[in-house]
Amino acid sequence: MISKFIYTKILGWKLVGEFPKELKKYIVIGAPHTSWKDFPIAILARNSWGVKINFIGKKSLFKPPFGFIFRWLGGAPVDRSKSNNKVDAIVDVFNKHDEFRLALSPEGTRKKVDKWKTGFYYIAKGANVPIIMFAFDFEHKQIILSEPFYPTDNMESDFEHFYSFYKDIKGANPELF
C-alpha cells in the first residue's frame, strides 16, 4: 500500500494502536491540531490503517465540478438550511448511514485555544457513538490511537479524560497546544 510506504518508510512515522474493526460508527478527535501538516499526515495514517474515516463539509462543497473529490476523500455534505444546529445536522448524517466514522478537531482551529469546542461531544452523545482519540505526536513521529471512549453524563470528567490522553503529546507547533 503506497500510503503506508510513504508514511512509514519515507516520512519515518509509526502507527500506535488500531481502529476498532467491529465498530461501524464513531467520532475520531484529532489533536493537537497545530499545523497544515496534520491533514496530509492524518490522510496517510488513515489510509495506512485501511479504515474509511469521513469528514463533514458544507453542502455547496459537494457540487460540481469538484464535489466528487470531497466525496472520494470521505466527505459528507451537511445541509444547514434545514437546521440552525450543526450538531443535530451531523447526528442526522450518522443516523442516515450504516457505517460512518467522523474525524474532527476538538480545538476547531490550528491556533492556540484555552478550551476545546464541545460539538464533537454532543454529536457523540446524540448519535450514541464512542469517541476515539487520535494524537499527532510530532516529537516521536507517531500517530497514537486510544481505545473507544463512550461519553458519560459527566462532561467535566469526560473532558479531563480527553485532556489526560493528550497531555504529553507535542504537535508540529507545540506552543499552540
Rank of each mutant, 00 (worst) to 15 (best):
N173D: 13
F5Q: 12
K63M: 10
P148G: 09
V113Y: 03
P130W: 05
Y121M: 01
K115A: 13
G126A: 10
F120K: 03
T152M: 01
V129W: 04
K112N: 09
K4C: 12
S105Y: 12
N95C: 01
N54M: 03
K117C: 07
N154V: 02
V16E: 15
L61K: 02
I132N: 06
F165N: 09
I123H: 05
E22S: 14
P40C: 06
R101Q: 07
G119H: 06
F55E: 03
A127W: 10
T34K: 04
W13V: 00
Y26S: 06
G108M: 07
K167T: 09
P130G: 00
T8E: 15
K141L: 02
F19S: 03
K59S: 14
I123D: 01
Y7H: 13
I29H: 01
S3K: 07
G57W: 09
N95S: 12
T34Y: 05
F138V: 03
A89K: 04
K112W: 00
K59Q: 14
P65I: 13
S105I: 02
I2A: 11
V91A: 10
P32A: 07
S35F: 09
I2H: 07
S83E: 08
V113Q: 05
P148F: 05
T8R: 15
T152D: 14
W36T: 12
P151W: 04
K63C: 03
M1W: 08
S3D: 08
G50A: 03
I90V: 15
P20F: 01
S35Q: 08
G67Y: 01
G75Y: 06
I169L: 07
K63W: 12
E22L: 06
E175V: 09
K37Y: 13
R101W: 09
D114K: 15
K52I: 04
V51M: 11
K115E: 14
I123Q: 01
K96Y: 01
V28C: 06
P148R: 08
L11R: 01
L15D: 04
K167D: 13
K112G: 00
Y7M: 13
E139V: 00
F177R: 14
F177Q: 13
S48D: 03
P64S: 12
A172K: 13
K24Y: 00
A42M: 14
F138R: 09
A89Y: 08
W49D: 08
S48V: 09
W49K: 11
H33Q: 13
Y26A: 04
P64G: 06
D38M: 10
K86S: 14
V51I: 14
F177L: 10
L73N: 04
F149T: 05
T152L: 02
Y121E: 02
I43F: 14
I90Q: 11
I53M: 11
P151M: 05
L11Y: 05
F134M: 15
R71C: 00
V113H: 02
I10M: 11
I169K: 00
R110G: 06
P40D: 08
K96L: 13
K170L: 13
E160L: 14
F62W: 09
G75T: 08
G126W: 05
D92Y: 01
M1S: 15
T118L: 06
L15V: 07
F165P: 06
T118I: 10
I123Y: 01
K167S: 15
K14G: 02
V113E: 02
S48P: 07
T34R: 06
V113L: 00
